[in-house]
């Protein structure tokens, strides 16, 4: 078990270093950092001096190591377009994105699991067919179209919900602003969170349905029936419990993609989060922000993957046994 954890941690660090080197290559070789930082009136001598000061004349390996060492301390340099430290810019926008992602995940679980269970237990009912049709539409509709549809209905036609921004936010401590505590903040959250949750919800629903159908065919379910247990005990205490293990894995892994997909949702709803910042940085070739965002997302994915892997092995005794078999 310990050997497994150590190996997974080392592999994760390897991935992070690889992504870090890609980020470094982007920063150093895509465009000239000096040209991006200074104005046209800067003389050649001043440019050369700045180049020397920033260490851009050092061997590439030294520069790469320095970049990685700084990145490990969340120092990504200064944004070309905003002339502010990248870490501050990202930090200021992180609460907006994380709150959105959090609410969207909860929403997709709360709706997706019951829908999946229902459509597995009542395969041919009208409601199940409706859910199946909805899930196909959920997968086919691009995220931004869902958002526009919601805006058209609830902002343009009905005028119930605001179509952009985060509403009023409350500052909690130096690092966090929250929209959870004001009415306008909560109202602003409804549509972006729904949009972001829709795709995940369809995914969870399809997964729960498929897993549940698989589990219901298993021998221990038949045995439970033979023992005369009630249908609800079989469905919920035996079947659902075993269905949820793979579901939780996938949901964990999907957390990262919720944050990535928030780029689209944030653009549709002008939500002041990290995704919007990243998109602006792509449009304005602001490499330090692009590099930092890439590393941030990579870190999140790698951490989640690692935690899920380790949890999986510690929860599932069969996997543990096979590990022992493999490594003595």
């Amino acid at each position: 078990m310990i050997a497994f954890v150590v190996r997974r941690v080392l592999a994760s660090i390897g991935v992070m270093i690889a992504v870090g080197l890609i980020a470094f290559a982007m920063f150093r070789y895509v465009g000239d950092p000096i040209n991006q930082m200074v104005g046209v009136e800067t003389s050649v001598a001043e440019r050369a001096q700045l180049r020397e000061e920033l260490g851009l004349n050092d061997p590439a390996i030294v520069q790469a190591l320095r970049f990685l060492a700084r990145a490990a301390r969340f120092d990504f340099g200064v944004s070309y377009q905003f002339k502010q430290p990248v870490a501050d810019l990202i930090g200021a926008r992180m609460p907006a994105t994380l709150e959105l992602a959090f609410v969207a995940s909860i929403l997709s679980l709360a709706a997706g699991i019951p829908m999946g269970v229902y459509s597995a237990l009542h395969r041919d009912s009208a409601l199940s067919r409706l859910f199946q049709a909805l899930s196909l539409i959920g997968i086919s509709l691009p995220t931004f179209l869902t958002g526009i549809l919601l805006i058209t209905l609830f902002s343009v036609v009905l005028g119930w919900l605001p179509s952009f921004g985060r509403g009023d936010v409350v500052r909690l401590g130096p690092w966090w602003t929250t929209g959870f505590l004001t009415v306008s903040g909560l109202k602003s959250l409804v549509m972006p969170a729904t949009t972001l949750a829709l795709f995940q919800m369809t995914l969870i629903m399809r997964l729960v349905r498929a897993e549940m159908l698989e589990v219901l065919r298993a021998d221990y379910i038949r045995f439970a029936r033979a023992r005369g247990l009630s249908e609800s005990a079989i469905h919920f205490r035996h079947a659902l419990k075993n269905t949820l293990v793979p579901v939780i894995t996938i949901v964990g892994l999907q957390l990262g993609s919720i944050v990535a997909f928030s780029i689209i949702t944030e653009t549709v709803f002008a939500w002041p989060g990290m995704g919007q910042l990243f998109l602006q940085s792509i449009q304005n070739v602001d490499i330090p922000i692009m590099a930092a965002y890439l590393l941030f997302i990579a870190f999140m994915f790698v951490t989640i993957n690692l935690v899920v892997d380790i949890l999986y092995v510690s929860v599932d005794p069969r996997l543990r046994a096979s590990l022992h078999g493999m490594h003595g």
Binding site: V15, A18, V19, M26, V30, G31, G256, S257, A260, F261, I263, I264, F278, L279, S281, I282, Q283, V285, I287, M290, L294, I297, A298, F301, V302, N305
Partner: peptide, 23 residues
């Protein structure tokens, strides 16, 4: 493949697009 698979395709496409814009 493993490393790339940890990122959603849309993010990879966005990054490649951004790098191409810069180049």
């Amino acid at each position: 493949a493993d490393v790339q698979l940890t990122f959603p395709a849309i993010l990879i496409a966005l990054l490649l697009d951004g790098v191409a814009h810069a180049l």
